[in-house]
């Protein structure tokens, strides 16, 4: 079976600035792929090229074997795209929104009516379907936003930061729905800067930063690149920048970044045994008031690959 998505050497430039630089990855049929990166890393620009909203300056995209540049209409039929921002008519009801977008996908009238009912059930909005979207909570709008992309039963669902700004309850509901869709065989491209979401939903992850795909693989593969490094989270009281600088010089520490006004994240080999040395190194600029040593995870892999955190 053809891969759900293959993109190769995607490039997008705005003037002299290259915002996407030779990004390439593939998603197999039925696979859930996460594109993980901080805000401004190039995730949305990459997705805009994948769904045909932006013309790449270089590279190719095929969806289900169809070249997006050569036959955009056929390729778009296979994609369900959920944009990062809510893209709905606020003055219309959820059902009216779904009807309008469903017609753009040429769904026959009767089939569309039935399908609208199904997706409203799926996202848990059947009882509010005839209320105007402008009266919805942020989470309900997000779920409607996703429902629109499911109407035509796409082979590949592309979700661009689908949980931004939603309440925890809606977030759980969205993630549950996404997991169910993947379990039913839908291919998924999920972008987020929330590590835990990507870890939960996706089987394979690409780490993108400053327009470049830094690494690509299963969670196990990415973590394995860390070797024996642990993630060490320190809470400090004092000059956090100077402390991070000092900790970076400690032998065994490969990365040290400031993650808040009083927190520093380290990648360190044998982190547990290194703690006394770290505390001693910090003295003079700050007092260490809390310590957590975490087994290697995606967060640590991200720090290792990009030298930065998934800043919000």
């Amino acid at each position: 079976m053809k891969p759900a998505l293959v993109c190769t050497d995607l490039v997008k430039r705005y003037g002299d600035r290259t915002v996407v630089d030779r990004v390439g990855f593939h998603i197999d049929e039925g696979e859930a792929y996460g594109l993980l990166g901080p805000n401004g890393a190039g995730k949305t620009t990459t997705i805009s090229m994948l769904v045909g909203l932006l013309r790449p300056d270089g590279g190719t995209v095929t969806v289900g074997g169809v070249d997006v540049a050569a036959d955009p209409i056929a390729a778009k039929r296979l994609i369900g795209y959920v944009p990062q921002d809510i893209a709905l008519y606020p003055e219309l009801t959820a059902r009216e929104n779904l009807r309008f977008f469903g017609r753009l996908y040429a769904l026959p009238r009767r089939e569309l009516a039935a399908r609208i009912g199904e997706v409203l059930e799926l996202v848990g909005l059947a009882d509010r379907a005839d209320d105007r979207v402008e009266t919805y909570s942020g989470g309900m709008k997000r779920r409607t936003n996703i429902a629109v992309a499911l109407l035509h039963r796409p082979r590949l669902l592309i979700l661009d930061e689908p949980t931004v700004g939603v309440d925890p309850q809606s977030r759980v509901a969205i993630l549950d729905n996404v997991e169910r869709l993947v379990a039913e065989g839908m291919s998924l491209l999920y972008t987020s800067h929330y590590m835990e979401e990507v870890e939960r939903v996706c089987t394979r992850v690409g780490i993108i930063d400053r327009g470049r795909l830094m690494a690509d693989g299963s969670k196990r593969e990415l973590v394995a690149e860390l070797g024996g490094s642990d993630r060490v989270e320190l809470v400090v009281d004092g000059d956090v920048e100077a402390t991070a600088e000092k900790l970076r010089a400690v032998e065994g520490v490969s990365e040290a970044v400031v993650t808040g006004t009083s927190s520093v994240r380290l990648l360190a080999t044998g982190g547990r045994h290194l703690l006394p040395t770290l505390i001693a190194a910090a003295s003079g600029t700050a007092a260490v008031t809390g310590v957590e040593v975490v087994e290697p995870d995606l967060e640590a892999a991200f720090l290792h690959l990009t030298g930065s955190t998934l800043r919000d």
């Binding site: 909203l53 955009p72 209409i73 795209y81 753009l104 996908y105």
Partner: peptide, 8 residues
């Protein structure tokens, strides 16, 4: 953008 992402 949503319209433009549709197969039209």
């Amino acid at each position: 953008a949503r319209m433009r992402a549709a197969p039209i």
